[in-house]
């Protein structure tokens, strides 16, 4: 396996513990067992749960009114709109790409397949900041295409197109990475049978492949969406931080926090945390479906 091959959530296979009680001679003494459980739970509580409680606590510190005000703020609403719009463009584009790439890679044999998979994985090993930087170097005023763009009055960086591009880059591999191993394991028999029976290409995909991969596809889309909405570093570099115009929700949080408007910052953060929790629940639900078959 290539080193970058499994470098994110979607690619990591999900452990399905076979729920069975281990015989006494194959497990630790009860005291050791409960000590380990306590240590693990305490670790997760401190590292992961405590920050979540902090978000809620700080968001409601000044009561419901202040919380609601922070969310009703026109700049917050503009940021929410931009964030949703960005995800609405980036996620479908990466989904179409992911399906195409997985079809080409898993249904055919060709040379250079592993190299192609490595290249698709590349954005996962690039720092978010660098993911933004590359678009500045390409489209910025001093960039390769900068003068041409200025002549034609096209703004890409420090504007919405740049934010969308950077988001597409950081979420690029999610759907493809999810589908490639899944479709690889399913082989080509079903599709070949359909083709033998006279089904055309798109019909084969729609009627045969899609039902087989729907949960995996959904899993990839959910993770892609979570990252698209939450991306900070890459978007921060290309955004230009213009309030009400090029601020996404994560950037809005940063501005509020740096202005010492902690309650407002955490109120907006609580919104994103809620979204993350919903993502986790949907993800767990999909994974349960994947393992029971249909």
């Amino acid at each position: 396996m290539h080193p970058t091959a499994a470098s994110h959530a979607g690619a990591v296979p999900v452990a399905k513990p076979q729920e069975s009680v281990r015989p006494r001679h194959l497990t630790e003494p009860a005291a050791v067992k409960w000590l380990l459980i306590t240590a693990a739970v305490a670790f997760v509580a401190i590292l992961i749960v405590l920050p979540m409680i902090t978000v809620i606590f700080e968001a409601f510190r000044k009561g419901w009114e202040a919380y609601a005000d922070a969310l009703r703020d026109p700049h917050a609403l503009a940021a929410l709109r931009l964030t949703l719009l960005t995800a609405l463009i980036a996620v479908p584009l990466n989904t179409i790409f992911g399906v195409c790439a997985a079809w080409a890679i898993t249904k055919f044999r060709f040379r250079g397949k592993n190299a192609l998979i490595t290249l698709i994985d590349l954005p996962f090993s690039v720092s978010p900041v660098i993911s933004g930087l590359i678009f500045i170097l390409l489209f910025g005023a001093q960039g390769f295409l900068g003068p041409w763009l200025q002549e034609h009055n096209i703004k890409i960086v420090f504007a919405m197109p740049g934010i969308v591009l950077a988001t597409i880059f950081v979420t690029f591999p999610f759907v493809a990475r999810e589908l490639i191993p899944l479709m690889e394991s399913q082989g080509v028999q079903d599709e070949e049978a359909a083709a033998t029976l006279g089904a055309r290409g798109f019909r084969t995909f729609w009627k045969v492949t899609l039902p087989n991969i729907k949960w995996g596809l959904l899993h990839g889309i959910v993770l892609c969406n979570a990252r698209a909405i939450g991306e900070f570093g890459a978007v921060s570099v290309v955004s230009g931080h213009i309030r009400g115009e090029t601020n996404t929700l994560p950037l809005h949080i940063e501005i509020l926090y740096n202005e010492y408007q902690f309650t407002a910052a955490f109120a907006v953060a609580s919104l994103l945390m809620l979204l993350a929790i919903v993502t986790l629940i949907v993800k767990a639900w999909i994974e349960a479906r994947m393992h029971t078959g249909k």
Binding site: A226, F232, L272, L280, K283
Partner: peptide, 10 residues
């Protein structure tokens, strides 16, 4: 999995 789903700024 929360760190995968939670925006880094939060």
């Amino acid at each position: 999995d929360l760190p995968f789903a939670l925006p880094t700024a939060v």
